[in-house]
Structure formats: C-alpha cells, structure tokens
Design a protein around this nucleic acid. Sequence first.
RNA 1: GCCGGGGUGGCGAAAUCGGUAAACGCAGGGGACUUAAAAUCCCCCGGGCUUAGGCCCUUGCGGGUUCAACUCCCGCCCCCGGCACCA
Length: 836
Amino acid sequence: MSTDPPTSYSPAKVEAKWQETWEKQGTNRFTQDDLRAPDRPYYNLMMFPYPSAEGLHVGNIYAFTGADVHGRFRRLTGHTVFEPIGFDAFGIHSENFALKQGIHPMDLIPSNVANFTRQLRRIGGMFDWDHMVDTTDPAYYRWTQWIFIQLFKAGLAERKEAPVNWCPSCMTVLSNEQVIAGACERCDTPVEQRTIAQWFFKITKYAAKLLDNLAHLDWSDSTKKAQVNWIGRSEGALLRFPILPPGGVAAGVDDAMTVAADALPTDTDQISVFTTRPDTVFGATYMVLSPEHPLVDEVTAPEQADAIREYSEVAAKMDLVARQKTEKAKTGVFTGGYCLNPATGEPIPIWIADYVLMGYGTGAIMAVPGHDQRDFEFASTYGLTIRRVVAAPGEDADTPLDEAYQGDGSLVKSEHFDGIPVADAKPAIVDWLAGRKLAEAKVNFRIHDWCISRQRYWGPPIPIIYCEDCGTVPVPEEDLPVVLPRVEDFKPDDSGVSPLARVEEWYRTKCPECGAVARRETDVSDTFLDSSWYFLRYPSTDSDDKPMDEDITRTWLPVDCYIGGNEHAVLHLLYARFITMALHDMGHVDFEEPFVRFRAHGLIIREGAKMSKSKGNVVIPDQIIEQYGADTLRIYLMFLGPFEEGGDYRDEGIQGPHGFLHRLWDTVINAEDGTPDPDVERKLHQTIAQVTAQIPTLQYNTAIAALMEYLNSVRAGGRTAVRAEVEPLVVLTAPFAPHIAEELWSRLGKDGTIFGQNWPEHDPEKAKESSVEVAVQVNGKLRGTVRGPAGMSQEMAEELARKEENVARYLDEGTVTRAIYVPNRLLNFVVGSADA
RNA sequence: GCCGGGGUGGCGAAAUCGGUAAACGCAGGGGACUUAAAAUCCCCCGGGCUUAGGCCCUUGCGGGUUCAACUCCCGCCCCCGGCACCA
C-alpha cells in the first residue's frame, strides 16, 4: 500500500489531482515523434461540438464519455489511442446569437471555446489538447479554403443560379429548417423564394460511389439506411416526347398517328422525362412541366400566356417548403401546347403544375393518371383522360379505377405489349423506344449538388476573385487564407448579398492573373464544409505548410472508430465521405472512405421528456460534477441504457453509481493481502469475460451492471476484500471512471498511469462453475430445479429430477413420452395424459 | 405516406443461435448496527389465489409454429426519431 492514509472518497480532490497529473505528464498528448512511430495506432474520433454560449450539454457529455470509454479501453488493451477534440464554431447559430446579444462573434466564440475547454477537461476525456482544431482559426480555415480551390480546379465546384428562401422582414436567406409552415421561424413573416447565384459542389458525381461503398462500411445500420434513402437511387428511363408545333393539333389526331407510324421526328424539340414506369407509357395522357421548366415559354400558346405567367409567379413566390406540402390540393394550368406520346403517337396536352419539381429528374413528367396517385388526383381535378394500361389478375382494360392502380399486373391497351407482366414490359418498352431514339435506360439519383454559399458573415470567405477580363479566378494558394475581416456591422440586409459586400476595402482587390482591379467573392462557405475534413487535420495540426502530413496521415487514417449523433447521419457524414473521395481522386489521400467504423449514440431525455431550454429541464453538468464528481456522472450516463439507444436521465438514479464508487473506494482501500476466495475468483473471471466482450460493442450499461454485481459479491456479508480480488476490478472500472481508478491504482502501490497495458485476462478454467442448477419442466411448465455437477448427463439430471416431490407428482399423471435436455440449463419432460 | 428505432414490474432497464422473465440500479417496506443521523450489511418488493406444500396469470393487442416464444412467423395498435408530391 502507498503511504497515503486511508481517507474517504473525495471525487473533487481525486479528479483535480489526476487531471493535473495527466496534464503535467502529457499522458494523453502526442509529440510529432509519437505521431510518427506509434505502436498499434488507433484513431478514436467523436463529433466535435459547436461551442454554444450555454456550455456543454449533457447530450454532448454523453456522446464524449461513450467515445472516451471506448478509447480508454483500446488503450488499456495495448493500442496507442489518438483522441482529439475541437470546435465547430462557424455558422449561422453563432452569428444569430451574436446579433441577438450584441456581441461580436470574434469576441463571443473565444469565450465560449474557453468555457467548453474547461468543461471538457473536467469530464476527464483522454483528449490530446496539443492537436485541437478550431474551425474559425485562420490557420484552420486557410485549408478549408484550400480544399475549395482543389475542388474548383478539379471541376467539382461550379457557380449557378438557385432558388433560396428569403424572409423579407429579417432580410435574410433562410435554410429550409428555418421555414416553419411557410413562415420565418423568427418573425413569422411569409417567406419568399429568390434566385441567387451560388457555389455548388458536384457531389452528385459521386452518388453511385457514395452508395456502393456503403456496403463495405462497418457503420450503424440505421445510418447506412438513412444515407441510402438520401442518395435515393432509382432505376428507370428517360423518355422523349416530341413537341408538336403550334397548330399541329388542328390538323387532327389522324395525322399525328400517321407520323407515329413512320419514325417520329427526332430533330424537333423534345421534352425529356424521367420515369420509373416506362411500362405505363401507353397510359401517359398528358404531360406536366414544372413552372420553372425552361421549355414553358416555348410550348405556351399565346392565348394561355397570361394564365401561365400568373401561375408561375404565384408558384415562384411560394417558399420551397410550403410548395412541397403533400396535403395541398393539386393545381396547374394548361399551356395550350401539345406533344406526342412516343408510344401511341397521340398528341397529349402539356400542363404546368407545382407538384412537379424542377429539382428532380428533368423537371417534367409524363402523367399516367391510371397508375400514379398524384397524376390521378390532378387528372380528376381537371377532367383529363384516365386510362388503364395495367391490369391485375382478374381485371381487364375496362375494370374501372377509383384511384391509381400502382400494383403489379400485366399490360393492357398497350398494343403488342399487351399481356406482358410489368417487370418484363419495362425493359421491353425502353428497348422498343430506344430503337427510335426516344428512350434510354437511366439511373436517377435524388441527391442534389451541395450548395456551399452562404450570404452571411460568420464563415470562411469563399476564395474566389472575379475579374472583368479573366473571369472567375481562384485565390492563389500562397495567398491563403483569405481572412475574414472584423466587421462591426455584420447584419444581413435587404440586398440578399453577404454583409462582406458592404466592405469595399475588403472585396476590392487585384486580379491574381492580370493585376486589374477585381472583386472578391463576398459569400462565405457552409459550416458543413468546415466539418467535412477536420478529422484529416487533427493529426497534422503541427504542420503549418500543408493541410495533411503524408506520413502521419497514412499512419493514422482512416479513422478507426467514429462516434456521433444520428442527426448527422446524412449531411455531415455524406459530405465528409464526398470530400475524402474527392481528395483521394486528386491524390491527396490514399483512402476513399474516412471512417472505418461509425456508431450512432442514442439521445438522453430527462424524466421521460425531451430536454430543452424552454422547458427548463436541462441537466447542468457542472452542478452534477460538483456534487457527485465526473466519474459518477460518467458511470451514471453510461448506465442509463444501451449507448446506441440513449436513456432517461432521472435525478435520483445517480445515487446508484455514486454509491458504487464509494463502495469501490472503501473496498479497495481496506483490501488485505491473501488468497482470493474461490467463489469470488470465479465471479471475477466471469466478470472480466463479460466486460471485455461488452465494451467493444458499446454495451456499457450491462458491463457496468456486471462490475456492480462483482463488487457486491466481493463485499457480500460485509467481508473484507483480498487485494487480488479487487486489483483487476479497478482496471475494469478505469474506462468508465478514470480518475478514481488512477487513484486506487496508485494506492494499491502501482507505478505510473493505470492506462498502460493493464487489462486483465480472463481464464476460462477459473470462470467455470462446478455445479449448476437445472430447471425441471413438465410439459413446459416449471415444476422445480435440481442442482448437480456442471455438465452432468441427461440420465443423472432425470434421476435427480424424479426425486423432486413436486416433479414426481406431475410425472405420475401420465407417461413420459420424451424428455428434452439442455445441458446445464433445463430438463423438460413431455408427459402424455394417462387416459390417452 | 415512406424509412429507422422502440413498447417487459412503481421507475431506468436485463434476458433475443427459442430454454428458470424481471440481472443491475432507483424509489418503497422491514431488520441489524448507532444516543441519533449518514454510511454499511441482511431480508422483502409484477398481479391473483393458498393453512402449508404450492397453484394460476403476466413481456402493447389478436392469431400461428414449437416439448418450450419477450425471442420466430402472420395480422393489427401505440410511442419516438428522420424523410416527405422524388415521377
């Protein structure tokens, strides 16, 4: 034992002591040399927090603790674990908060970061503070801008017009999430749509790879599925509908049919549509263009022009969210124009309607009201032809439709395709039309290109210069970073352009190519760009001259384990994968996928309800830590429920883990030399086995239960522990409660940090039970139990069972027809009734 | 509507290659120790019967498979999270 007198457990003292010791000894810090030559490197990553003014939320602590437990376990089992942390501090939330409080973000963020840092140190994470990242630091965003330029040079960044939500009262662009029921979330003003030129990253180029690679990733299933849905691959065809020249219809349907009989003209203008149901093309009785479709003007007849213009204006004014409400009744206007159904050769009317979205497929659809519910509703409203072209067994072409039939069946009214099942008809019809160049098979993706422009202040300026003569020129890499200037008036205004556009001395610059007067891009980039590569930067923060050190990156990446919230299942994780793939294809990294393993943690609620500031039921971690200590909080959070499912924080419950640590302290401090009790030793080895198996699978709650159970048996009846019984227990507890474990370890007279390779090994022989209790059932009902040697034979078990009075009574009621024996577990007699 | 996740004691939850449902913990009750309290230790703690031995019921609801179902299959209901006119 150490010379320290046995004192009672004081979390505050123990935790302060060890946090200081780790800091002083650099226990968790990596030098350049450490990073270059690690033994069994393990990159343990958690999603970095956004440093709000409120401080760390228990949700953050929950996530970080869960990740830290994993990291500490890996370290105890012999890995060199790199566990960095940082701050995702740019973005609209900080900016809005700063506006509201009247504090400049450049003042606000550092104080938030300082507070977060203090809190993060207090929870005892194994963070390497020498490799911290702050996305608002020019030394970091210099490389965020560098990434933009690499993508620009690779043709993966382009500038184009795109619609945005605009609040005329707040005079700002809103994201879709900030639009509630068509109104601004802050002032309730109806939102409008504006069209602004913005920068996009062509993530759609990687859609197929982003989807296909998922199959090989060790990720939470729910996360993978969310990505699959988001990418939204659908197989179908592109069909072309030739536009009939004005007056073409007047000539009559017969003429049109004649045209169809020959080859349809391919040189006239056509409208392309994407469909997953090419088999229903014979039922396409009209066509719908999105109001924004470029061909709207061309197909509109003069007498319909006013109505079309009016409808388009209303649609354009509507915000993007309200427009996409499904419950809304379908509306539209006839353009007066016609096109030819490529299959039937019939002229069909062209409408515009806002239920067709410019953002998906080609922005135009062939409407098949007989087999698409949306088209059915629209056709019913406007009296358009509804034609059945698929019939289920027992139906025929004349079976009436009172809603769209979207099920399986065979084709009808489809000329020589009649009778062919839907699945076979799809390729057959595409082939047939492809022969006349009116169709081709096509895979479409739902995912859009990534708009990274923000008409805001608090972000890294997009490193682009516009020159009258040279056009769009990237800022030369040696001129990076383009520093975000300190601007006191950073409030957005009615112009819809970035606040930086008001700072002439900043945006006026020289063209890097010709030296002429030029103008900087005044938009900043999306926060998701900051976070799409931070994990690449962590191990290389010592390098000022490059974003990633090649050797170090090769050594540490990809990330071994990434833990975070499922709210980022789609955007953040997809963007990070995309950026990594793009960097891979440009030769900057040698892997395509950044995260080998990803696990989503669950959510913490409180007393059955979601925590929120407005409800005033937020757990303040500092208070809990003061009262019970970080170790208790860590264990309690991990004990609440399965880590991947979250848990219900109940204030009283913390007593359990708190008591556990007190008893652990007491037991270890008073432990004596001696020989372990055989029963306790058996339990010990069972516990080692369970905890060792359950930590890697994040089953922390049951692992902790096992530790408690073991401590209970060590202390049973008030007995004094033997040191050999509790030394391994201290190590098993260390990932969850690192401070007390260190303290007890040193009081046990051990040298150095406990987080060396000290994980105990379990001996299966010692874990074996010598006698077992076997449940005895008669006809599946429990009638007794018998105890016998482990692994006893069925004969022996039956013999013991028959001696049980209660069992015997039921056996006497009939004859045993069979007996099922599960060794060491259960014996079930199947008894036929005596009369039978 | 679609895609995930989930429904088990007063509460948080265990147990799913089908094998004694409720481990561990909270709250509650009783006891030991104590002048007292705290801490600690021991016992009880799903429901209904029963003098006892014991019996019956119970994992959202209804069916089914099986010697045996929280676990598998079919059909529903409810809650949470995400997406949502995606052609």
